[in-house]
Design a protein around this nucleic acid. Structure first.
Lengths: 249, 249
DNA sequence: GTCAAATTATGACGTTAAGTCAAAAAATAG
DNA sequence: CTATTTTTTGACTTAACGTCATAATTTGAC
């Protein structure tokens, strides 16, 4: 079938353009991402790139969607983990941090997308996909919190509501990632592993919410080990290798 | 003295340019901020604007510095508040949220500054000033946490250290602000006052850290009232008026 | 295999904004 | 009042965006 061969070609090129864009974005940032540059590196003309993406912003949204798709799968894996709701919300937070460690600029991309005037330029279709992914991510987290309330592990309060707890956890994780990628030298403050710090703070927060069973060091360590070596074994290794490489530079 | 009159003129113009830039930034965002536009609105030529600021990015840093200066004064006011360290760290967090409510785009500006390739273009002097303000803000928060450890209100642990606690609080506040300014419709999740939600989550976190004296509703309400009507009375009124105006639109 | 029709790729073109700089205008001083 | 210094200006260069007529290629009918 000749038609489908052409279609395959186009799909491949679409992926190629995205890959090149992602490379430019991680190394040099959005401000140097230009359609001409992508065309040049892919050895196509500018017009061809514009046939795939209406503008820079559209590329960004599609890259974000790829990235969020990964996060989504991480979350769904963490959520289906066999353990108490508390273990699972911890696993979710862990997954969120792992995800941001894997792609150094995932957070920056999403951040950029949230900025004034970026969404306006992207296509409806991509934005819809984005919103749906976001929805999936949120309901994943919310589901666990609601389950904890149902089982009685987490006291059923008016304030903070399940949504508010999710909002706070999400803020903590996102904010932490934001600070990690920004200029502040956390290591100067004696924070060598910010993701672990955040995770440890999360457990204190959960304790503060009286989310049963309360923190026990042995159990927590066992949980993290299981996540590192079982649920997210492959990704954990990838991050480890990456950080070794980074240290060499 | 004629010389000083000219100097005053220049200083006034500098402020005018910044003001116009800030206006453009809050309404339309960084991507439409152009030197020509500023020049036009200020009724000067482009070259004159360039005599004040080497580039767009330099304007952004200087605006951020203004904004951080405000935050700094908020923090110092909150820190010198008469109360327990726990009350004061709560006041700090409150001040952080208040600050972000006052200028709708303070967080977006700082976020933008942190992005790839922005700092590179700004002048050394402005960046130095920025780093010093950041330092002041951090030590303000860190000082309170360390005091709490010294007085015994907060258990002296290796983990999380004072720095880690500060990092987490800062992440929570910043992340929350990020999510508020992003597209996510928090109100759809039943979160009507995100800043309050975050503040309430902070108290749970502090409880989880066993930071004495633990949360008591009456005391907490009294503290917030005092902050609203005394320490930050003026700013609180400003935010209230602003939100009434926003609701009318 | 050939050719007309449809699809796809190209890069020249118009536009906008960044950043530079020589020349014009204004201020200062003798 | 004029010479010198300082300040202001906008024309110019460069670079990227996004468009679109034209060129090249592919397709499908015969």
């Amino acid at each position: 079938m000749t038609l489908s061969r052409k279609q395959r070609e186009i799909a491949e090129r679409h992926a190629l353009f995205l890959e090149i864009a992602h490379e430019i974005l991680s190394v040099e940032g959005f401000h140097v991402l230009s359609m001409e540059r992508i065309a040049e590196l892919a050895e196509y003309s500018k017009g061809t790139v514009y046939q795939h993406f209406s503008c820079k912003e559209e590329i960004l949204v599609q890259l974000c969607n790829q990235s969020m798709h990964t996060l989504c799968s991480f979350f769904e894996r963490a959520a289906s983990f066999d353990g108490t709701p508390r273990d699972r919300i911890t696993a979710l937070f862990y997954a969120h941090q792992l995800w941001s460690s894997i792609g150094s600029n995932q957070t920056e991309m999403l951040q950029h997308l949230a900025m004034h005037g970026v969404r306006d330029k992207a296509t409806e279709a991509s934005l819809l996909a984005h919103d749906q992914l976001e929805q999936r991510i949120f309901s994943c987290a919310l589901g666990i919190i609601e389950e904890a309330i149902k089982t009685g592990d987490l006291p059923n309060r008016k304030k903070p509501s399940a949504s508010e707890i999710m909002f706070a956890c999400w803020s903590l994780g996102t904010g932490g990632q934001l600070l990690m990628t920004s200029d502040i030298r956390l290591s100067e403050l004696g924070i060598t592993d910010p993701s672990s710090s955040l995770l440890s703070m999360l457990t204190h927060t959960l304790d503060g919410l009286d989310w049963q069973p309360l923190h026990k060091d042995a159990h927590f360590k066992k949980l993290i080990t299981k996540l590192n070596t079982d649920v997210f074994a492959e990704e954990f290794e990838q991050v480890k290798l990456q950080s070794i490489k980074d240290n060499q530079n």
